[in-house]
Design a protein around this nucleic acid. Structure first.
Lengths: 104, 104
DNA sequence: TCTATTGTTCGATCAGCACCGTACTTGTTT
DNA sequence: AAACAAGTACGGTGCTGATCGAACAATAGA
């Protein structure tokens, strides 16, 4: 399993520009690196199959890594690889995602 | 014309995650702030109407500003407003866009 | 006034994708 | 073995958006 680098920028931005996936990334960001959380553990308002689809998209963009543990699958953010390839990008997105919505 | 702030993060990322628009943003980034370049001056391989559509998308996301000068329309990047709302995001994206493609 | 030039808008087409339910695979547990 | 749990794969649906050509407005220049 050669650790492929994150995909091209357009693919990465595309993957991040979905509300569900962005929320997934936010929740993943709150985990230890290399630890990961379970697929079904992510709290989002979509069905199992849809969640699986989104996780696959993130995986294909090289944003997340996965590891199987029995029947379960752990997913984590590939912070280091993203930082190497696109410095500052993930941090800016995560920070931006925490920014309050405009109320005015 | 009250300067509305950039749109929500998903909208901004969505706008940036298209190859044509990303290239537009890159070209716009090479201009003086507040100066702007002409619509037709942007070198992309799409028709006029498509380019107009993409510029509208960028405008609606609050990424660009526009000003009419006769029959022409100047467009510029709203660097300052973006930096205020989403610190580091634009710079990271522009920097990432300059990153070389993976050759391996 | 006539004619380019500049850009928008409209209608149509086509592709992609988010979403769901269901069926399936694989591993765990009893 | 049988039942359960976790997640994937598939087929289908409906919506959004990228794209084009053509028609249109508005201004500038001859």
């Amino acid at each position: 399993m050669a650790e492929t680098p994150p995909a091209d920028l357009v693919t990465v931005l595309q993957a991040l520009s979905d509300p569900v996936r962005l929320e997934m990334v936010r929740q993943l960001a709150r985990c230890e690196e290399g630890h990961g959380i379970r697929c079904g553990e992510i709290e989002i308002d979509v069905t199992k199959s849809t969640a699986s689809h989104h996780l696959k998209t993130l995986r294909n963009a090289g944003i997340t890594g996965e590891r199987e543990v029995g029947t379960r699958k752990l997913t984590w953010l590939r912070k280091k690889e993203l930082e190497e390839r696109y410095p500052g990008l993930l941090e800016a997105v995560l920070c931006a995602a925490d920014a309050p919505a405009i109320t005015a």
